[in-house]
Amino acid sequence: MIRDWDDAYANRDHIPGADDFVRRWPEEAAAFRAALGERAELDLAYGEKPRQVMDLFRPEGQHLGLLVFVHGGYWRMFDKSNWSHFAEGALASGWAVAMPSYTLAPEARISQITQEVTAAVEAAAGLVQGPVRLAGHSAGGHLVTRLVCRDSCLSEDVLERLERVTSISGVHDLRPMLRLAMNADLRLDAAESRAESPVLREPLEDVRVMAWVGADERPEFVRQTTLLANIWTGLGAEMAQVKDAGRHHFDVIDGLREADSPLMQAVLG
């Protein structure tokens, strides 16, 4: 039985050197953008609000398709500029990568963030031809799976191009968030927590979904990943699940930097 729900979802408190990851990411991301030069198209607007912007990174040569990566941070931290270097593996594989920012809680509710990410995917798909892949980490994992529920607001054109979705350490049942102190920012109530939980909704047909999690993560993140895999499999989704041995919440995404990593192969297919 969980008695301390805040601790159950506290990643930094249980990962040695966690703050080093958070400090290092913006530096590595900035260096990566600088090295790409003109192949990095920055701050492309997909809406009118300040954070409704995205970066688009293009590979050398012909594009094979588009990957949209949605960042995490419990829907209330970070922006696109922290994650640019995690486009490395997809770019090396010939895929363009879009990374959107979105309005954070408490300014936006999670249902609003879902709509913003929908708009970002639509805008990115309008700039790059070919198949579309979605991937998200942590809160981003929630958002990309939310976009492939049956009530998705993605256009028919994008859904026809969308073949694979990968949730990396995602939170798929938002009801536990009601018990956390951070809900002062999220402002979830019982109705919204149910409405925005992918595990309480039916998945779209014909989309392959990968639920990926570090085997050394907090038990709640492993449970949340297994929950999605179990429930959506029972609803007819083409599901797969991986528990990545030796990985925790902050290094589980490192495989996105390697074209031939198991994670990158799962994301792109």
Rank of each mutant, 00 (worst) to 15 (best):
L67K: 01
A45C: 10
H71T: 12
A96H: 08
R51N: 08
M77T: 08
R51V: 00
V68S: 06
L64T: 11
H85Y: 06
V53P: 00
F69A: 05
R51P: 03
A96Y: 07
G94T: 14
G47A: 13
W83R: 02
P59S: 11
F86Y: 13
R76K: 14
D55P: 07
M77S: 09
S84P: 01
S84Q: 03
P59M: 10
K80P: 00
D43R: 08
S84A: 15
D43A: 12
Y74D: 09
D79H: 05
D43E: 14
F69R: 01
E88G: 02
R76C: 09
Y74T: 05
R76I: 04
V53H: 06
G72W: 02
E38G: 14
H63M: 10
E38W: 06
L56Y: 02
H85V: 01
A45R: 13
G72D: 05
V70G: 00
M77L: 12
D55S: 09
G47K: 13
H63T: 14
G61K: 15
Q52N: 11
W83Q: 03
L66Y: 05
A92Y: 09
L67H: 04
A92Q: 14
W83L: 06
A96C: 10
K49C: 02
D79S: 06
G94R: 11
G73Q: 06
S81W: 06
S81E: 12
L56P: 00
E88T: 15
L66E: 04
H85C: 03
A90Q: 06
E38N: 14
M54Y: 11
G72S: 12
G47V: 10
L64K: 15
A87H: 05
L91K: 01
E41N: 06
L42G: 04
A96R: 08
L42T: 01
K80T: 00
Q52W: 06
R76M: 13
F86K: 01
A92E: 13
V68N: 03
N82C: 07
Y46W: 11
G65W: 00
P50N: 12
W95Y: 15
R76A: 12
A40E: 04
K80R: 15
D43M: 03
P59W: 08
G94Y: 10
E48G: 13
R76G: 04
Q52K: 09
E60H: 13
G94M: 13
F57K: 02
K80E: 01
A92N: 10
A40C: 12
V53W: 01
G94K: 10
L66V: 04
G72I: 01
S93L: 10
A92R: 15
W83S: 02
D55N: 12
W83A: 03
F57A: 04
G89D: 05
G73K: 04
S81V: 03
G73W: 00
N82A: 09
R58K: 15
Q62F: 09
G47R: 13
G61T: 13
F86E: 05
M54G: 07
H63G: 08
W95C: 03
L42V: 02
A92F: 10
N82W: 09
Y46R: 11
R39N: 14
F86A: 02
Q62L: 12
P50I: 11
L44K: 01
D79I: 00
L66H: 05
W75M: 07
H63W: 10
